[in-house]
Design a protein around this nucleic acid. Structure first.
Length: 458
RNA sequence: GCGGUCGUAGCUCAGCUGGUUAGAGCACUGGUUUGUGGUGCCGGGGGUCGUGGGUUCGAGCCCCAUCGUCCGCCCCA
């Protein structure tokens, strides 16, 4: 084969041992919290049938789905003359599978397929990569991990409240101290468009006001005017989305504004209920804010909507979620409501990295390296090595034949905190040289003493 | 899908208005008193200047194309 350049696809990344240590630290921290709240792990295939995914994320979303070319003579099945087909019409004919775009839709499919074996409410978490054919940017990759926690089969708003607790606990455990959990409700957004008398334009309306903090009210106004809203609509809208004050006072004002919209009032009620549930729990760092301009995941969310933003770094949202009432209906099982949240692990990684919040312990694997001067020393040391491992101490022995200098360098490069040196003298006395790589200090200790010392360290 | 930016050693970059053998720091590697890393000192290897065309006596530098990067828009974790 001709020489080819070693490369990986755009928007994907390799992870080295140091990065994997840190990534696993994030996953482990999240998992621990998820389990604590009663969630169980599942996984779904990398590929789904293309028609499982299409139509769930809107037109823009559909275009970002990575499709998998059929095997074999895929053109044979096309049937029509190729030249007559547009790409969009061609792709479902030559690609029947696609890489998953998120974890929520595959989860809905899972629930329907396995409905007879799960008992409701079903609480699951799932940590797997997803793929989007998006243009890469800061904090945006084509392959990235989502960490989803969802519950289906429970309409209780206690779930929503608990998700806020999960966000707070997980992100706090990771060392973040300043972040907001924004909450809104799709029904409130519906109420607003009802009051304006433009229920059919809810998507345009919400997409525009979602950009409020980015482009300001003037920007939103410009966008709305271009979407067919008139100035009196905007005058009416202005006091609503610019509502300020604490959550309670916002809700009070909103109640008056949306008085004529039953749906809107219901949305307000749901927020009330969630906030009320929350008073029974203590949050460590999260600020819970009602944000009427929050409009995520409109293609399937029907109730509460969440989004998490850190104030410690410039980064898009590091998590989001909401309630969806109809997702399983698309797969033939109606009447099942679900609610869930997602953590963007790769973005969280970038934030923790930027803030220097990874501790060294997330990275080191081996705790002690045994360095030997020759073959006899190696043989002598194997029982020491064996004992250390039996005590659950991560230990390795550098096979003989390499200079001590090189072995120490290995320990240093690998961030191994302790080294044991075994030579003639050590074998004679049974006292091994035990070196702390951090301080550089070393002393002679028996294997037993070293073991004890290492056990008290961890 | 649209707009901009950049592309020189493994990494971060320098290279003046085009002019002989393309440089630095870090990394790597060897040595530096006996069996000792991270700090010091001395030496060494490594680049067809993203790729393909073109202009020119001559191109890392100019032009075109192409691929890739990073950033913004759309959208989103």
């Amino acid at each position: 084969m001709a020489n080819m350049k070693a490369a990986i696809p755009k928007g994907t990344r390799d992870f080295n041992p140091k990065q994997m240590g840190r990534r696993n630290y994030i996953f482990d921290t999240l998992k621990k919290v998820f389990k604590k709240y009663g969630y169980q792990e599942i996984q779904t295939p990398t590929m789904e049938n293309l028609d499982t995914l299409t139509g769930k994320y809107g037109d823009e979303g559909d275009q970002l789905i990575f499709k998998v070319l059929n095997s074999g003579d895929y053109l044979a099945k096309v049937g029509t003359a190729l030249a007559d087909l547009k790409s969009q019409a061609l792709s479902p004919k030559i690609a029947e599978k696609a890489l998953r775009y998120d974890l929520t839709v595959p989860f809905a499919r899972y629930v329907v397929m396995h409905q007879n074996e799960i008992s409701l409410p079903f609480k699951r978490f799932q940590i797997q990569p997803v793929w989007r054919a998006d243009r890469p940017q800061r904090g945006r990759y084509r392959e990235f991990y989502q960490c989803d926690v969802d519950v289906v089969g429970s309409a209780s708003l206690l779930n929503e409240a608990e998700f806020i607790c999960i966000y707070d606990e997980a992100l706090s455990n990771l060392g973040l101290t300043d972040f907001s959990i924004k909450i809104n409700n799709r029904k409130i957004l519906t109420g607003i468009s009802d009051v304006l008398g433009k229920p059919e334009s809810i998507i345009d309306l919400t997409v525009a006001i979602d950009k409020l903090d980015k482009i300001g009210f003037d920007g939103v106004q410009t966008e709305l005017l271009s979407k067919g809203f008139n100035t009196s609509d905007i005058e009416q809208l202005k006091p609503i989305i610019l509502l300020s004050g604490n959550n309670a006072s916002k809700l009070e004002s909103l109640k008056l504004i949306l008085a004529t919209s039953p749906t809107g009032l219901q949305g307000i009620n749901e927020i009330y209920t969630v906030l009320n549930y929350l008073t029974n729990f203590t949050l460590q760092n999260a600020k819970v804010e009602l944000d009427l301009s929050l409009a995520r995941g409109l293609n399937y969310y029907t109730g509460c909507i969440f989004e998490v933003k850190t104030h410690q770094a410039t980064m898009g949202s590091i998590g989001g979620g909401g309630r969806y009432d109809n997702l399983t209906e698309m797969f033939g099982q109606a009447g099942l409501t679900g609610v869930g949240i997602s953590f963007g692990a790769d973005r969280i990684y970038d934030v923790l990295d930027e803030l220097n919040l990874f501790s060294a312990s997330a990275e080191q694997s081996t705790q002690v390296l045994i360095c030997v001067l020759g073959q006899y020393e190696e043989t002598y040391s194997l029982s020491v090595l064996n004992h250390l491992r039996k005590q659950n101490i991560a230990a390795e022995l550098y096979p003989f034949g390499t200079k001590i200098k090189k072995q120490m360098q290995y320990a240093n490069d690998k961030n191994i905190p302790y080294a044991i040196i075994v030579g003639n003298e050590e074998m004679k006395t049974g006292k091994l040289t035990f070196k702390n790589m951090l301080t550089g200090q070393q002393q002679m200790m028996s294997a037993i003493e070293i073991e004890k010392h290492l056990l008290t360290q961890s």
